[in-house]
């Protein structure tokens, strides 16, 4: 191979692909966990406030093990904290969906529901991963996520099939977030490498089960799924995040940026 060709097509090693996969999983839970934590002290009622904080904590807990494993596999002596607090926007590999702003309570719950439905299916597959560490994380996380899904689905139904006001807000949230659903089922050379090694499923194979799961709930919620399947993308590859991620990171990372290495 000539140097020019190598530069044009930098082939990923198996280890690099694995790290990217782990970052995708861990960045999803990190960014969504942070987003949900923004509700702490602001939710409409105390019960929802605590429930959202619990979900955020579950997601941050999962982040610690995903990013911990990513750092181990990377082998550069970094920690999960280094990966969470010292990377910049373009290094993040989360789906665009999870970095979308909270909006109103309905939009937060719709985002949660659309993500939970995918997250549960993904973790179910990862339980039989050829990598024991991945399978162990999935085993633990899938129980938490089963509850997240139950709760978000039930709330989407209650609000969608609630008052005219709540119905309209949920429909607006669905219309706003639907273009970010498709990215969950995109597949690239990293996914191909993971699928070949038996570590993770090809995301495209999850779409049918996802559509069934989501359309059942949305039908009960009397909400209409937008017809367009146009998918915003660029989050999981890091090519193009939304303008919202930088603002989120500024808040999440400021302490480590202002006081490097600070501990408490």
């Amino acid at each position: 191979m000539t140097a020019a060709a190598a530069k044009a097509q930098p082939a990923l090693t198996q280890q690099e692909a694995f790290v990217q996969f782990l970052l995708r999983m861990g960045d999803n839970t990190l960014i969504l966990g942070h987003r949900v934590s923004e509700w702490c002290g602001h939710a409409p009622v105390l019960e929802e406030d605590i429930a959202l904080a619990n979900i955020a904590l579950d997601l941050i807990g999962q982040t610690q093990i995903w990013l911990g494993l990513a750092a181990d596999v990377q082998g550069e002596g970094k920690s999960a904290d280094d990966l969470a607090f010292l990377r910049d926007a373009w290094d993040f590999r989360n789906l665009l969906l999870v970095e979308m702003p909270n909006g109103d309570f309905g939009q937060t719950l719709m985002r949660q529901f659309l993500f939970d439905a995918w997250h549960g299916l993904m973790l179910e597959q990862l339980k039989s991963s050829s990598d024991e560490r991945v399978a162990a994380i999935a085993e633990k996380a899938s129980k938490e996520v089963a509850y997240h899904f139950e709760r978000s689905a039930e709330t989407v139904i209650s609000l969608g099939d609630g008052t005219e006001e709540s119905h309209n807000r949920m429909q607006a949230a669905l219309d706003y977030l639907w273009p970010y659903v498709g990215e969950m089922f995109l597949s690239d050379e990293i996914d191909a490498a993971m699928e070949q090694a038996g570590i993770a499923p090809d995301p495209t194979t999850l779409r049918d089960a996802y559509d069934t799961r989501v359309s059942d709930v949305l039908a009960e919620a009397t909400l209409t799924i937008p017809e367009s399947r146009f998918a915003q993308k660029g989050g999981r590859t890091g090519q193009m995040h939304t303008e919202h991620l930088g603002h989120l990171l500024t808040q999440m990372q400021w302490l480590q940026r202002a006081y490097p290495g600070a501990k408490w």
Binding site: L46, E47, I50, A51, N54, Y147, E150, R151, E154, S158
Partner: peptide, 14 residues
């Protein structure tokens, strides 16, 4: 809570 099922969920969380 709005209904019994949500009351169970809220109780679990709280």
């Amino acid at each position: 809570a709005p209904d019994a099922e949500m009351a169970i969920k809220n109780a679990r969380d709280v």
